[in-house]
Amino acid sequence: MPTNRIGQSTIVLPGRPRILAGASIAGKKEGEGPLRGDFDQIIEDDLFGEESWEKAESRFQYEAATAAIAKAGLTPAQLDVALGGDLLNQIMAASMAARELHIPFLGLYGACSTMAESLCIASMLVDGGYARHALCTASSHFCTAERQYRFPLEYGCQRPPTAQWTVTGAGSIVVSGDDTRPALCRATHVTIGRIVDMAIKDANNMGAAMAPAAADTLTRHFADTGRSPADYDLILTGDLGRVGHDVLLALMQERGMPLDPTRCTDCGLEIFAPGQDTHCGGSGCGCSAVVLSGHILRRFREGDLRRVLFMATGALLSPTTSQQGESIPGIAHAIALEADA
């Protein structure tokens, strides 16, 4: 049986699935940040005209998905599969959006790594010929995440300095195997992450919980592909935030594969400016989703980037296991994107 695997854990995509289009919709605070020009829409109303934040988040997903499909020159009926997820219990934002889209749906949970997880699976489905066009969507909402993981909005407590700010927004990307359509970039390699848990229990320091998983996936990706950090214009991690990013740089230094800080950045650091009082930066599935589908795809289109390793990281904790004293399992999935030569 022929295989598309190289090395220990990397998948080559010989057909190089095409990223046709991406759309991003972000909330007010994100719209005040440095990437404001890269979002398709900025929604000032935290409820997005709905009665609850959960429905608002779902609408973020729906609007991002329909915008991405339209930008790809497709109709929802042409999509063979939609993959997506969010942070809510039972990923309801994704399910309720899929209810409106009528596309065969696979719901995913990878915490903040969801965008990379869905891109990895969509690229494999397309490359294997199991889908002609596939849709990847992920979202998060500050208000839904706070009430589920932390405290009510009006509760007066201090956020510790290592905390990150959940991004309100949704990003959606169309992956296609159709050779006749112009691509913004193409997916070439997938490295699926494994859980790495270094016994971090502090739910307010998720960057530290995820950084070892990011280092593990990076190390395996380089070993499998024979590439080095220098082969990428940009290594874009998910939402490690300030602490996690610094820890990742230190871990890779230790492993003799130092990352160039000017060519390795984190979605959580890109999305907010230091003056926005988010402490260690952004987080949430929506963070890497909007940075990738807005900012990064724009830079591919403009020819500014040739090869990017997108690696979203997830802190797979739940309030229940946290209260039981469990440490936080971290994960990171990587997908290599290349400009269409």
Binding site: P161, T162, M198, A199, I200, N205, A208, P212, R242, V243, D246, V247, A250, L251, H279, C280
Partner: peptide, 10 residues
């Protein structure tokens, strides 16, 4: 690792 995190956390 815990010491590294402590060193890098604000």
């Amino acid at each position: 690792y815990s010491a590294l995190v402590d060193r890098l956390s604000p």
